[in-house]
Design a protein around this nucleic acid. Structure first.
Length: 487
DNA sequence: GTAGGGTTAG
């Protein structure tokens, strides 16, 4: 039997296993809890399969569930699901499906974004009569909301006979993620008890809704009313609200707070967010000071990209490129975000030759496929420099499915600036074909005609604009925009 | 056992 299972699970052969793996179940469990790695899990699984038939069902179930836990929580959700599925097909009698098993499997579905499989496990939950179980039901609510099935998440939540703090938090963060702030807020006010995760979730909601003042007010309230201390995630959540308001003093307050609490010492994400916040509040001096205080081996790609993008957004192209070089010297490989910052720096600094070089390096050396933002940067850069032919060529070289009217608009702006009527007309035609007219395009085109003295044509374009009743301004509020993009 | 945003153009 063990040989059969060995092939079923695709486990490594015994010869691959370290001989040091203990014999007893409790030793194996304590080893797994101390070192929850994928490698060790595979080893233990092999052991379970080869000698586990000596163990009683209870012990075997605990080890099986522990393996599923490590897989589903440790970033290997597919391993967990594969394992379960193979066992189900070949040896269903072996397969435990208790509340623990289902919680971990649902977690794996959430982490691998598989609502269809998750729905099947929901069926199992009902069949096994576990619909009353708080942990399992909470895992269901979480799975549905992580997978974007909010209606189903709310249905499960509504019908739960019993909820705990985690259930409420799962539901609130799920609502916040899809922009349902009002419902989230009413649940937040209704819930019997709140912890720092509940507060962080609702603060996040206000930040996402572009209501930074209320986010910060809630942050104070969390400490004053519920006497709760913010943690690392709270800081990561509140910083975008801080830089939205451009509040440099508050950035400094948070840096101090994070140094005092040890977050700066323990969590590089917090430092990265602080660097970014300083940059966005306009203080590259503070951003750079913090950046240079970190020892080299703690800096990761996001740290480097944050400082590069900071210089890029302040038009300090030379500094951006300098830190990019330093980063490469450290042996780190830039990703698509790093390149976007570098290209944007080149575009703003008029460094056309360098920009073209980086674009080619991105594609050829680092094998990164350019996205629409990279193309946008390049077209903007070439257009600003008056290299309109090259800019148009790059736009035409873009994959069609990526094409966006904004790209044409960027190009039209460049035509206007450099007075290229012929290309301007060509681009305008493309914009009209896209049937997404904005007044600004007509005005740009009309300005191009005015610039070369073709007043009659300019008048015609303006007339066309009235005729088609083109909105002169984008009459779309941020809220409309957000709800359009979250559906 | 079930819970939480690090960097992204014009």
């Amino acid at each position: 039997m063990h040989q059969r299972l060995g092939t079923i699970f695709g486990m490594p052969r015994l010869s691959y296993c370290r001989p040091s793996l203990p014999d007893h179940e409790h030793q194996i469990l304590s080893l797994l809890s101390r070192n929850p790695s994928r490698h060790l899990s595979l080893q233990i699984h092999s052991k379970l399969v080869t000698s586990g038939y000596h163990w009683n069902d209870h012990k075997r179930t605990i080890i099986w569930n522990s393996l599923l836990r490590v897989y589903s929580q440790g970033g290997y959700p597919d391993e967990a699901l594969k394992l379960y599925n193979q066992a189900l097909q070949t040896s269903p009698s072996f397969l435990p499906t208790d509340t623990f098993t289902l919680s971990f499997l649902l977690k794996a579905c959430a982490n691998s974004h598989r609502p269809i499989l998750g729905r099947q496990f929901h069926g199992n939950v009902v069949k096994l009569g576990l619909g009353f179980h708080v942990y399992v039901e909470t895992a269901l609510v979480n799975m549905y909301s992580v997978c974007g099935c909010l209606d189903e998440a709310m249905r499960v939540f509504d019908e739960m006979p019993e909820r705990n703090l985690v259930t409420w938090n799962v539901m609130i963060t799920g609502l916040v993620k899809v922009g349902e702030l009002d419902i989230a807020l009413s649940l937040f006010n209704e819930m019997p008890r709140r912890n720092v995760i509940s507060w962080t979730g609702i603060i996040d909601g206000f930040t996402r809704a572009n209501r930074p003042k209320e986010a910060i007010a809630l942050f104070h309230k969390m400490m004053a009313v519920d006497r709760l201390e913010p943690n690392e995630i709270t800081v990561l959540t509140i910083l975008p609200a801080v830089w939205n308001l451009g509040n440099l003093d508050m950035c400094q307050f948070f840096q101090g707070y994070c140094e005092k609490t040890g977050f700066v010492a323990s969590d590089i994400r917090v430092i990265n967010a602080l660097i970014d916040a300083y940059a966005k509040c306009g203080s590259m001096k503070n951003a750079l000071r913090l950046f240079e205080e970190i020892i080299a081996n703690r800096k990761n790609l996001v740290t480097w990209t944050s400082i590069i993008s900071g210089f890029a957004m302040h038009g300090m192209a030379k500094d951006a490129l300098h830190w990019f070089q330093e980063m490469e010297k450290q042996g780190l490989s830039p990703n698509h975000v790093t390149f976007l910052s570098v290209l944007s720096a080149c575009s703003h600094g008029g460094l056309v030759k360098e920009g073209l070089g980086f674009f080619s390096k991105m594609v050829n050396v680092y094998q990164i496929k350019p996205g629409i933002k990279h193309y946008g940067c390049m077209i903007d850069m070439l257009g600003r420099a008056g290299m309109l032919e090259e800019a148009e060529k790059m736009a035409l070289d873009m994959p069609v499915e990526m094409m966006d009217v904004v790209i044409w608009r960027t190009l039209l702006g460049a035509c206007s600036f450099h007075g290229d009527v012929g290309m301007g007309e060509r681009i305008m035609r493309r914009i009209l074909e896209s049937e997404r007219d904005y007044g600004a395009d007509y005005i740009l085109m009309s300005n191009i005609f005015v610039g070369v003295g073709r007043f009659g044509h300019a008048e015609k374009v303006r007339g066309l604009m009235d005729e088609k009743n083109v909105p002169k301004m984008k009459a779309l509020s941020l809220l409309d925009w957000r709800s359009k993009n979250t559906c």
